[in-house]
């Protein structure tokens, strides 16, 4: 259990304007429901992604309000909160998936390593190759299992020979823990798999391009408990090589798989901290109410 959570110091990223007020408050216990300043430490020592003052508008709706947080390398961070709190929206900012929604407008700064993902020289194609994503509902393409996994490497021209591609597909399926089940049926359509297998296929598809970060948007919400357990196990293994951001509506899942947890409420980042601390000792009244099941 981390004791640095009481830390009130605001470690601003060097690239940021030091004068910009960072809305972050701390204290022992925030009981004021109206207080929407982020409680807890948003920074980490070895950040993979750094987000500062991110705002998202959908047309008139202010969906994400001034959210700042760091995502550490090789950690699993969970975003939790009641539905409609903006956790998925924020997740979709991280690989600019919100670009595909015409009405969405994203402001603020998001950095991947040292690259500003909104910068001109960063192509969204390149960004998404580096930041992969797994969706709520398994969405395998209507192609064979092999082609599903080979899709990313093919479009990015990552391999030169068929043998290389074969290796890559096998390895990705292996890492996704699916190889035993599909070894003999690589040419069958991806949709012929069960829901849990499909989701692992989508994970294999995402890791085939060897991304640095994997975003998971409620990856288990459409799955049964056994399939869920397998995916959670997989997430734990993947942490070794990847940074994983997972949005979940299940607090137990967040507690099981993540090291840090961020609690979102109506577009605000209310509290962020080590997972253990958030679940055992929430410091914001809203977090506590959510965790104890008073709403959500």
């Amino acid at each position: 259990m981390s004791t640095t959570a009481i830390d009130t110091q605001v470690a601003l990223n060097g690239a940021l304007n030091r004068n910009a007020p960072l809305r972050q408050s701390a204290g022992v216990q925030v009981t004021d429901y109206e207080n929407r300043q982020t409680v807890g430490k948003i920074t980490v020592d070895n950040p993979k992604m750094v987000c500062r003052e991110v705002n998202v508008h959908y047309g008139q709706k202010h969906a994400i309000k001034n959210v700042s947080l760091d995502i550490g390398a090789n950690e699993v961070i969970a975003f939790i909160g009641p539905s409609g709190c903006g956790k998925s929206t924020f997740l979709r900012c991280l690989n600019r998936m919100n670009d595909t929604i015409p009405t969405a407008r994203v402001t603020g700064q998001i950095k991947l390593d040292d690259d500003d993902i909104h910068a001109k020289e960063i192509d969204v194609v390149q960004l998404r190759a580096r930041v992969g994503m797994v969706f709520q509902k398994p969405n395998p393409f209507p192609k064979s299992i092999y082609e599903n996994v080979a899709y990313g490497p093919r479009i990015h021209g990552m391999v030169n020979t068929k043998a290389e591609l074969d290796d890559l597909v096998r390895e990705s399926l292996e890492r996704a823990g699916l190889i035993k089940e599909v070894e003999k049926r690589m040419l069958e359509p991806g949709t012929s798999l069960s829901g849990g297998q499909q989701q692992r296929l989508c994970i294999a598809r995402a890791i085939a391009v060897n991304p640095e970060v994997i975003l998971m948007d409620e990856p288990c919400s459409a799955l049964d408990p056994i399939a869920t357990a397998k995916i959670e196990e997989l997430i734990d293994e993947l942490r070794e090589n990847y940074t994983i951001v997972i949005v979940t509506h299940s607090m137990q899942q967040a507690a099981r798989v993540s090291q840090r947890t961020a609690y979102f409420h109506l577009g605000d980042l209310i509290e962020i901290g080590d997972t253990d601390q958030i679940f055992t000792n929430p410091r914001h009244k809203l977090t506590e109410d959510y965790i104890t099941g008073r709403f959500g």
Binding site: D123, V125, Q126, A129, R130, H156, G157, M158, V159, E164, L165, D167, L168, R170, E171, E174, R175, G177, V209, N210, P211, E212, E237, E240, N241
Partner: peptide, 21 residues
């Protein structure tokens, strides 16, 4: 844990950024 991770992987050691770019 999968053992293949230690094996030869085609993308190991290659910079995704440059490949994509």
């Amino acid at each position: 844990k999968p053992t293949a991770r230690e094996g030869a992987t085609p993308l190991r050691g290659r910079n995704i950024k440059t490949i994509v770019n």
